[in-house]
Design a binder for these strands. Structure first.
Lengths: 135, 135
DNA sequence: ATAAAATCCCAGTAAAATAATCGGAATTAG
DNA sequence: CTAATTCCGATTATTTTACTGGGATTTTAT
């Protein structure tokens, strides 16, 4: 139940992009410095975010990354689902449950899954840049 | 962000103890069979639950485990905190936060941590044995 | 055309965490 | 005394995470 550093670095990068929204690209080099990791590692993370269409890239000189949608329309939930295997804390919920029959814990995992997603979906990047969750 | 099998097996064992509450002990052998793991592995998990005083043990022949408190007073939150490193999804929250300054993600981890704990603390073992979270 | 700046792609490796396994000591009931 | 059981500590195997590295491709500027 630990969050991966991919999630931390990736969210950090997205917050930076939110702060730079409509002010042009940020490069992996710039993003990685502030996120506190290597370019090569953040590169992989940006590839995941791009595949999920959370960020949009421009190749070549003067290229870089931008948010695909506005910070108000981009949630932490989307970002972490992209970087944390869809936030599936147990496999039971998508695959068939292979636990004991009947699996009396199932309802726990369902509730927990919903709690986590509801929480994170309610936080937009915009609210984080304002330091106010209701902003 | 995956739940460990320790948490799954441990919760399964606790549910079994809840169903057997005030009907005597259950042995590791009995618990492990239904939980679907080995005796030796569940032994370790029961030791953790004992240390957290969630279960009480009786040694020797005809020994085994019982719940320390009633199923109504034992929550899934307690159990998973015991088996999942206190449900600390990031280290920032207890240690000093070593992320970028200022760490704009901090509020996310706080919210998530609270959501998870509130969710799990609201589920008692009793409600699980009844298959009704409001029971 | 060339060079520089950037993303993109794929492969490999090192470290850490997880999931066990193993052997045997201590305790208790009968 | 014996059998059933928890308790204790060490070791090992497997999987996941966290990186590192090389180089191809794309784009802009000169």
């Amino acid at each position: 139940m630990k969050l991966s550093v991919k999630a931390k670095y990736g969210l950090s990068a997205c917050i930076q992009l939110a702060e730079n929204y409509q002010k042009g690209n940020l490069t992996v080099s710039q993003l990685s410095t502030k996120a506190g990791t290597s370019e090569k590692f953040l590169e992989q993370i940006m590839a995941m975010l791009k595949k999920a269409e959370i960020v949009t890239s421009t190749r070549g000189a003067f290229g870089g990354y931008t948010l695909t949608k506005s910070p108000k329309d981009t949630t932490v939930g989307e970002i972490l689902r992209c970087l944390e295997d869809n936030l599936q804390i147990v496999d039971c919920l998508t695959n068939d449950c292979k636990c004991e029959t009947p699996c009396q814990s199932f309802v726990v995992w369902q509730n927990l899954h919903d709690s986590i997603n509801n929480c994170l979906d309610s936080i937009s990047l915009y609210s984080l840049t304002k330091g106010d969750l209701n902003g």
